[in-house]
Amino acid sequence: MDPFAHSWAALRAAVDDLADADFEQPSGCTGWLVRDLVCHLVIDAQDVLITLVTPAGAEPTVNAATYWDLLPELPTGDDPLDALIPRLAAAYGEPRWLTFHLDDVGSAAGRAAELADPATRVATKDHVLTVGDYLSAYVLEWTLHHLDLIAHLPSAAQPPAETVAVARTLLEEIAGDRFPASLSDVDALLIGTGRRAPTTAETAELGDMAAELPLVLG
């Protein structure tokens, strides 16, 4: 299994299966509707394409886990870039144009990732890392956004169990600790990144780790 390809294909398929009315539902990202999240995915796909053609000669400075910045607080939707996304999404008008653009750019990003040498070093976000580590980091990105996409769409397809497990492992590496085995992979991701609050029982199971959560990835 190629976790990057598997998670990205599943996310794009989930978007493709959305009804027009689904685009107006809230997503799991604060302040964003589903259409806004899909617009963000277009930008993410563009970032993948840009990074994969931005080789670096320096030694890697980060890996898949340390690539992520840990932000001090959960997003509110007021960040200028976050606030820009809904305006960009609205400019598409009908959902079909948004899904067309995601399919077009997303397919290209998937092909570029498949053709890239995992050992090649690339530059992004003022970091240098291997293609393999970069694509591994994006498995977490795709998986979390798949969960965001379907947060209020109970009939939508879940992300693949295999890639959810991969994403959990990476989040545990970022945390420097392991989530309790009693937490499902999905719950570990949602609680670990602040997408939902733990119950009293879950907080007790988390123990000292609870004080370090959520991990707000940027």
Rank of each mutant, 00 (worst) to 15 (best):
P214Q: 05
P55H: 01
L149S: 03
H101D: 10
T66A: 01
T163D: 14
V15I: 13
A58E: 15
A181F: 00
D78M: 10
D16N: 12
L49D: 02
D104F: 09
P86K: 09
R96Q: 13
G192C: 13
L213N: 12
L41H: 00
S136D: 11
L153R: 11
N63T: 05
A112V: 00
A201N: 05
G28M: 04
T163C: 14
D185N: 10
R35F: 06
H152P: 04
M1R: 07
L41F: 00
E59K: 10
L189S: 04
A167Y: 04
L135A: 01
I174P: 11
D17W: 01
E202I: 00
Y92I: 11
A113G: 09
E94A: 15
A201P: 03
D17N: 14
A204M: 08
C39S: 12
A19W: 05
F179L: 05
T193H: 13
I150E: 08
L144N: 09
D187M: 10
P72W: 09
F179A: 07
E162N: 08
T66E: 02
D22C: 08
A21C: 03
T143V: 15
T130R: 11
L88N: 03
G57S: 08
P159F: 08
P80Y: 02
L190T: 05
A112Y: 00
L74A: 15
P72H: 10
A116G: 03
L71M: 12
L37W: 08
P3H: 05
L170W: 13
P95Y: 10
L170S: 14
L102T: 04
G194S: 10
E172G: 12
S27F: 00
G31D: 09
V34F: 01
A151S: 12
A13C: 00
R195T: 06
D82A: 14
P3C: 04
I150R: 15
P86E: 07
Y92M: 10
L81P: 01
G31S: 09
L129S: 00
G176K: 07
S136K: 11
A188L: 05
G207L: 12
E94G: 03
H40W: 08
S184Y: 07
L140V: 13
S27G: 06
Y138K: 14
T54Q: 11
P95T: 11
N63S: 08
E94C: 03
P60W: 06
F23E: 07
L84P: 02
E212I: 02
A167E: 10
D148P: 11
Y92L: 10
L147V: 03
D78H: 12
Q158V: 01
P3K: 03
H6M: 06
A201D: 14
S155W: 12
P180K: 01
A197M: 12
S182G: 15
A56E: 02
G28Q: 04
A14L: 00
L74D: 03
T193K: 13
R96T: 10
R121G: 04
D17Q: 14
G106F: 04
L140S: 07
S7Q: 06
V48W: 00
G207W: 10
A9L: 02
D187K: 13
L153I: 13
V131W: 04
R196P: 07
R121W: 13
A123N: 09
L170V: 11
T66Y: 00
A108Y: 07
D79Y: 05
A109M: 12
L11R: 03
L213P: 12
Q25E: 14
